[in-house]
């Protein structure tokens, strides 16, 4: 019995170890590459620990990645798109979530169904039509055009997060405030929102990550390189015609730098994303 227990333990630990190595492998590869110098990049087979650790890659990319623009500009653009997404997405989803949480009305079920089904449609399927709409409004090559779409596509899940957290605020409080003569707006801003800040923060972070991680919308709508977010900026570095040798060491240091803000935010709302999955928290 004990020998089996020990064998079982050994098996479990070796599986766990292998799994962690496999998961960490691409990350370690990225970190290793990001610390190489240009000449060490082109050693075959690839070395793991650079002979001279080249932290410089993390500093000079802010000015210039390869022959392209610097990370400062890409970061600014990503920040604008992500914050815009947070703002608009919350402005749309707070009233929607409040209404389906507090009102009984004809069409409530249909609206909730609409919310659920629309979050299943990925933007790639509709991209041509979205492109035409933006062209019509003259919003191609603007941040606003991108933000309108990322907000719309991140809204359904935000509504869902907010709906569950608004529902957790006791309705007795609404009632009491209403008897005291509070307006609905006051109830929302002074009672419901402060009491469900957990949900609000989660929805904000979710929208931020959605905006920051967006690739397709910016790739399609934005033309000028000084407007591109970091995801597309790096892409253009890899695929722009005439690129002979890609500065992969700088690509990796920029990639790691741009993943950090999202990873920190992600770890904050991780628990919630897992709990709320059943209604389809789809990322990417």
């Amino acid at each position: 019995m004990t020998i089996w227990k020990i064998l079982e333990k050994i098996l479990i630990y070796s599986f766990a170890f292998m799994l962690s190595v496999i998961i960490m492998f691409p990350i370690i590869s990225m970190i290793s590459t990001s610390l190489k110098s240009w000449s060490e990049l082109w050693i075959s087979p690839a070395i793991w620990i650079p002979n001279t650790i080249y932290f410089d890659n993390y500093i000079k990319v802010w000015q210039k990645i390869g022959t392209g623009l610097g990370l400062t500009i890409y970061f600014r653009n990503s920040m604008i798109i992500a914050s815009g997404t947070v703002l608009l997405s919350l402005m749309l989803s707070i009233p929607a979530a409040y209404t389906i949480s507090r009102y009984k009305f004809k069409g409530r079920k249909e609206f909730m169904f609409l919310i659920l089904i629309t979050q299943m449609i990925p933007p790639i399927i509709l991209i041509m039509s979205l492109f035409t709409i933006m062209k019509m409004f003259g919003l191609l090559n603007t941040y606003l055009g991108v933000i309108l779409i990322t907000s719309t596509f991140s809204m359904p899940y935000s509504v869902w997060i907010l709906f569950t957290s608004f529902n957790a605020v006791p309705r007795v409080l609404d009632e009491a405030a209403m008897l005291d003569g509070c307006s609905e707006l006051k109830i929302l801003t002074n009672i419901i929102i402060p009491l469900s800040w957990h949900g609000i923060i989660t929805a904000m972070i979710y929208a931020f990550i959605y905006g920051w991680s967006d690739f397709l919308i910016s790739l399609t709508f934005l033309r000028s390189s000084e407007l591109l977010p970091v995801t597309v900026g790096i892409f253009n570095l890899l695929y722009s015609p005439g690129t002979v040798e890609i500065p992969w060491h700088e690509v990796m240091s920029s990639s790691i730098l741009s993943a950090i803000p999202v990873m920190i935010l992600f770890s904050v709302i991780r628990k919630y994303l897992v709990r709320g999955f059943s209604m389809g928290g789809i990322k990417g």
Binding site: S213, V232, I234, A259, G284
Partner: peptide, 9 residues
Amino acid sequence: IPWAMPLAI
């Protein structure tokens, strides 16, 4: 970790 990083990255 792989889920927390932006897909493109």
